[in-house]
Amino acid sequence: MTSPPLIEVENLRIDLADRSGRVAAAEGVSFRIDRGETFGLVGESGCGKSITALALIGLLRHPLSIGAGTIRFDGRELQNLSAAEQRALRGNRIAMIFQEPMTALNPVSPVGRQIAEMFVLHKGKDWSEANRLAVEALADVRVPAPERRVKDYPHQLSGGMRQRVMIAIALACSPDLLIADEPTTALDVTVQAEIIELMRNLCAERGTAILMISHDLGLVANVCRRVAVMYAGRIVEERGSADIFRAGAHPYTRGLVDSLPRLGSRAALGRTRLTEIAGVVPAIADFPDGCRFNPRCRLATDICRTTAPEITPLDAGGLVRCHHHA
């Protein structure tokens, strides 16, 4: 790759203001996404994956703010852009779909109008042309009878149909980057499979890169070419998705995979006791010193309790943040 990456995040720190001052909800977050690439951020609640996505699209609001680091989109630093310049990027070149389509859609506006708005705001179309494009956009996300469905309000649609509408809005302007934050968590598995295939195909056709955020390792492995695992505000491992879950280098990554009751493993190995990760996910205000995973880690030694490990390259490719990595 000779062209610069589409997104380059360097040493990002996101601060959370609370009564006692500021705490870093995420820090030292660095990654890049190339054009058309699929990249996944995996982790549990509170690990910082969603706020990292919000920082990318410029939607962090009080009490959250960017404390340090840079985000470059297509070579330009996002923090240096004016509010108007950021608005011109948002929805147009960086788009986002959310977990719960019912709360993300406007309940008192027909879905066709919510799609058409994108063409009016970002592409300078008049409303009649934009409405025609909205019908096409609904057809693209395979909503049956799109010319009738554009007149529907969100409550008249099923959860799967609403998420299709969200995708139609997000991809209306053929953005360079689609951020998908738990896009199918609220859906049934058969509907999830359809939405994932749809999102993947449409993005591939348009050359849109995907940043997918999820707690579902299987889903991220399925959609993304590269994956970063986050724990307690830091990226602990970043690898190709074929390697990271098969041979995770960080004890947390391995622990997550081992703790899953994977389909087919009981038939192959019998019912074995699931490997537990001891302890609980720490709250932002109580991130431990040293390596943040150390209180739950079997491999932890003295250095893990005192010194935070740096993120280092692995021989097999990829990065890991661990003193004792595999």
Binding site: V189, E194, R262
Partner: peptide, 13 residues
Amino acid sequence: AIPDPLRHTPLAT
């Protein structure tokens, strides 16, 4: 339709 972290087969739809 269940995605598996160790097998990258297309999901049944």
